[in-house]
Amino acid sequence: MFKRTFFLGVLLALLSPGVWSEVNSVAILSKIDAQVSFMDSDFSAEVQLNQIKPGEGVSQKTVALFRRDREQKYVMLLLKPDTDRGKGYLKIGNNLWLYETVPTRRFTVTSAKDRFQNSNARNSDFTRSTLAEDYKIVSVTKEKLGPFDTTVYTLEAIHNDVTFPKTKLWVTPDNLVRKTEDYSLSGQLLRTTAMPSYQEFKGRWVPKKVTIIDALLGKTLNGVFKNEVTEYSLSKLSTDPLPSIMFTQSYLEKNSQ
């Protein structure tokens, strides 16, 4: 009798709208995560990053990115410009280290929410996609985005350790995110990210070019407000196995200036 009542209770709970949508959220977001994550191999790429500040020109950086998604690790090493060469970040789980050489050689913990090298990208942009672990879907609409028929998911964070508490995704039927809008808790738009085209690599998808438009930072030039924009593209992709020692603080230390 108790067992039957228990299972009936569980069944009813699963069929209730709140729980059902939560389960559905995880399923939908997991499919999106799976398209861009390399859980069964390491992943390496070279990132060309251009930051465009209105009236100040373009600053360029080249970064080597090494990811081990199954262990939630990444290492990023700056290759250019020469003055920043060898600077690096190590991320293991939620821990992110930056190696400083001035005033003393030591590792400092930094936040994944921080801006990457003062650009409009965040350190968290370069890790594997964890939408299913971080967000739940609160609304769904359909929208045309250029040539794409997209489903627009409005997401809210399910814990505080995310870079943005609210976000909107424009997703094409192949489960690729083409555009995102990230919001503060108060609903203020913070940035828009566009990923119009992807490159298929070893059964996964990598954006060809990512454009991040900062909604708050910019400058008024000739009476027109121009937003700060960061663009980055990924090339030289590889899934070759990486040595474990690359994902240690010592590796960053060895490469630093």
Partner: peptide, 8 residues
């Protein structure tokens, strides 16, 4: 092309 693990 592949990014070199000894890029730097």
């Amino acid at each position: 092309q592949k990014v070199a693990t000894d890029a730097y």
